[in-house]
Design a protein around this nucleic acid. Sequence first.
RNA 1: GCGCCUAUCGUCUAGUGGUUAGGACACAAGGUUUUCAUCCUUGUAACCGGAGUUCGAUUCUCCGUAGGCGUGCCA
Length: 534
Amino acid sequence: MSAVRVRFAPSPTGNVHIGNIRAAIFNWLFARHEDGTFLLRVEDTDRERSTPEAIANLLSVMEWLGLGYDEQPLYQSTQEKEHLAAARQLIDAGKAYLSAKNEEGRQAVIFRIPWDTAECPAVSSAGPATIQVHPDVPVQIVANGVNYAQVSKKGKPIPAAACLAGFKDLEILDESNHCIFRLNNHIAGVLDNDRSFEVDNAAQFRFTRRQVHFHDLVKGTLAKPLDSMKDLVIVRSDSSPVFHLANVCDDSTQGITHIIRGDDHVENTYRHILLYYALGKTPPTYAHLPMIVNDQGKPYSKRDGDAFVGDFRDKGYLPHALFNYLTLLGWSPGDDREKLSREELIQLFSLERVQSAAARMDLKKLDNLNGQYMAELPFDEFLNTCRTFAETCDWFDADAMDTDYFASVAELLHTRTKRFTDVCEWDYFFREIPDYDEKACGKFFKKLEVRAALTDLAVSLKNLSTFTPETIERAVHAATEKHDIKHGKLNQPLRVAVTGRTTGAGIYETIALLGPRRTETRITHASNTYFGEI
RNA sequence: GCGCCUAUCGUCUAGUGGUUAGGACACAAGGUUUUCAUCCUUGUAACCGGAGUUCGAUUCUCCGUAGGCGUGCCA
């Protein structure tokens, strides 16, 4: 086992989303490829929204997809003491401070983006910088940062704020370029919260820009200037730890070496890295995955019901088909292979090959892949799952069901089933009279000779001594010749007369399965109902 | 507004400083199947725009454009 330790850290607040589970899959694949450890951490600190049902759903979805985790899952709610201790540590070290009191007289804990970055190798200088400032709005320099107004293109003031650390060596200049304030002269007092300043008539900031940077395994080297960051709340005034703190603490205690997550977290990463160093830890390696978007190219929202993993299971997809399809969203093995076994995926997976643009779900392609997996499913397994899905269909009658007959239907349709929900369309095998596609009836029952041939067939099929695909084929052939119909031109009318529809398995096999009685009844029904007047 | 990220057929993607820019899904045509589906063959279809570097740019750089993410006492 290698030193690699990764985790999937969902918050159990409802159904598991497809984008989430894709992150889980990539973590799992990376861990297995590296012979490392894959952990589950349940971020259940949102007590209002985290429910036992959601946790059960999460666990069942992971099991369904075969995403086995190593070690016991860590429930974040059990770590609150550790989180608060970390906050205490930061306060004691002067790296975090308390907010102003709220109405109830309580205070939040705020992490200060560090002014002194000596111990933080992720911060580097980006050279001198200037920002235009609107003179109408006084610049405030206080313990929790700098408040000022930028100048819009139209010359209007736009409120802005950033952490103190963003403005190393800050000089504030007035409109005639005179320096009217030097932060370095006052920084100690400001940080200690003894001093604060309000500077009028400021026109420009001149300072040394510093930035946090890290190397992302997917996106390369990324950086963010400190003057676009603000100090952040790490413990709310009700004493509950905030995501950023909890996340960093737990990743640290779980010994996570690689954080693989959606790229909506890129911006958080800069803050997390700063937190790691402030806590005396070294941050892990990061890899940010592109988002999965809906067929409109938009981010999935709660309204995209299709996006829950459980829905794919309910819609009759095979877990490995979904798994395989999801690996192809934002990743490829580098050659033309697409249908890949789990072993192949483990062997081939690498974060370096992950795409950085968002990927769209293509349900058609998923269907195709699912059909491929479906076709090679062992028949017993196929049959059992068909049975489960059939039970949800309105035509299914558990008491009256002939299991051998059901199995024969399943066998006949096995290779043409793309999803298990297709089973519901097998209704024409089980109803006495199926629903008829009237448009198809109009089209295929038009010719007189076809009607006559079908009427003949109702009788000749009924009188067959043995009722097999071969004998049926001969009977159809005979009727075709007798009524001077071209080869094969009776098959579709016959199919419509017997099944009500234009597609299905081979028609002889279908009729053989239905049996002589039902066949005759249906042809007669079709004749009476749809042949109409001459 | 500001910061960051992204951009190859309709979709998922491969790929390269010089290629007939490859594959898959979808779509279309033909073939096999006396029928349906499968299957086989073929076809339609892409380097976001503009500059620059270069003998040569889809590939490198810059500027646009479009989209995404972030800018919370949400996660």
